[in-house]
Design a protein around this nucleic acid. Sequence first.
DNA 1: GTGAAAGCGCTAACAG
DNA 2: CTGTTAGCGCTTTCAC
Lengths: 317, 317
Amino acid sequence: MSRALNGKPGVSEELRNRILEFARMKGYSPDLAAVGLRKGKTKIIGVLIPDVSNPFFAQILRGMERVFYPLGYHLLLCSTDENTEKEEENLRTLLSQRVEGILAAPTDSGGNRSIYKKIVDSNVPLVFFDRIVPNLETSYVITDNEGGVAELVRYVYEKGHRSLGVITLRSRSYTGKMRLSGILKCCDELGMLVKEEWILDGHSTQEGAYQAAKKLFQLEDKPTSLIVCNNLMMLGVMKAVKELNVKVPEDISVVSFDDSYWNEIFDPPITCVAQEPEQMGLIAATMMMDLLMHGSRPAKTVLKAHFIERASVKQIK
Amino acid sequence: MSRALNGKPGVSEELRNRILEFARMKGYSPDLAAVGLRKGKTKIIGVLIPDVSNPFFAQILRGMERVFYPLGYHLLLCSTDENTEKEEENLRTLLSQRVEGILAAPTDSGGNRSIYKKIVDSNVPLVFFDRIVPNLETSYVITDNEGGVAELVRYVYEKGHRSLGVITLRSRSYTGKMRLSGILKCCDELGMLVKEEWILDGHSTQEGAYQAAKKLFQLEDKPTSLIVCNNLMMLGVMKAVKELNVKVPEDISVVSFDDSYWNEIFDPPITCVAQEPEQMGLIAATMMMDLLMHGSRPAKTVLKAHFIERASVKQIK
DNA sequence: GTGAAAGCGCTAACAG
DNA sequence: CTGTTAGCGCTTTCAC
């Protein structure tokens, strides 16, 4: 039976055909759970993502799907909502589902370290993307966050700006830490002023950034430029800009980490550094396949964010 | 063993505790595939989606996740890329994975009818969302496409417009058919002129709509208003608007089916009818749970698209 | 209250 | 070339 259905040698053509025909007639479909149980291979990969509805992660997901689909692997999707407990629970379930590997964008750079450690130790292939848990022997793809923000800061500096505001990500997240520290370091080197009250927490969300931007725009003593730490927050800032009728770049110049649909069509179009989420997903998935097929050593890739000049920064003489 | 671990009665406290302790020490985690095999319940729901990277579907997915997660169900994700063959293959795999139910946005309103029919007949709970295969006894949630476009057309008409262009979805898709026919029907009733050459196929994509809009904008004989049939295509139209330096609404008035991040921050902000994707996902998921738990009759929900007036339509005297 | 055994659907290994 | 059997990890049933 099995031989015939799976096209293995050792069956006569005639018998094989009879079995195949019978199977078709009965509408037979193999139970992959049973196969998985027997073979110890489920053909399922677990993906842990903060939020699918964020286009950035949605595009990553698409990149992954693109490599797994042709290889017959399927994706079990879990959202963490940036919640450490949910992350832990999801991780446990994925393990229980006996996924062959886990792709994760960890919520917190330290929070669930011990669980990830356990996963690594138990030899379940693990690949981090976008964010990492430091000092863990896993494959990962991340963007050069510090390099990316440095490029933005330097650009603004060269345009003559000497003061900068920042709308930050959740401070506990890996990317949040990297981007903020990168900005401050670069500003420090260049002698760019970043007052304490110009650093506002946008909580990684559109709404958070909207509130933060409103607060900033209403300050007496404002910086001449503003850096926004991700795509969703840029959207919140745009809303505040419109609502308070702020003129960009006349009143304030704005740059953003991440490019997204809206940066280009905003008026003025926003200068930014872009990541390539789909590419990142693709790479992460490929790393996973490498781990799975060749059991190779962990690979580490740092993607460059590429600079896109548009029209949201004013030249100051 | 099983009794102790699952908290079933019939075991002494002492033995139970000893077993639990031992399990914890050994890092035991139940094999859900085996449980599933034994119980005939995999706790996995299959989701078939055209494209995760489309924010509309990503948000639907999020809505689904929100109801399934607390109930211990997990999502197996498949992308069809609007490709009928991929859809068929994915459907087969989902069935083979013995998912307990399937949530699907079918690619083509007729294409894979027979497979869906088979799924229904084999009593696997099936819920359509956003799009349906007509005349199939399943639950579904869709938006009132005809009502939505009618609202847009009537609004434009009342603003004094008497000619309308259309950027359409892929003509084979359910939503594509419904929206176009709704528009034409409404225009016919009102006496709104829609010339053949003003109906342009945007192929449901940003790029397609970009090309289509450019073509339209360069026509000698243009309509005074334009309706764009979804969110992604609106983005393409925006790009064309910027590139050709078209003035909205002075040169041409624009309305859109779907609201999305960018409609609000565009200049001018776009008048549209909005769907609520997360809500739709939530409802679809709830329907699935109903089917699963109570085995109830198929439920059919048609959501109203709600009108949002912004500033992209000019009043003509 | 406890242990042992059967069997979910499959495949690999082993006889015939 | 073909038919049978054991066992993947679990739960349910049945016997003690």
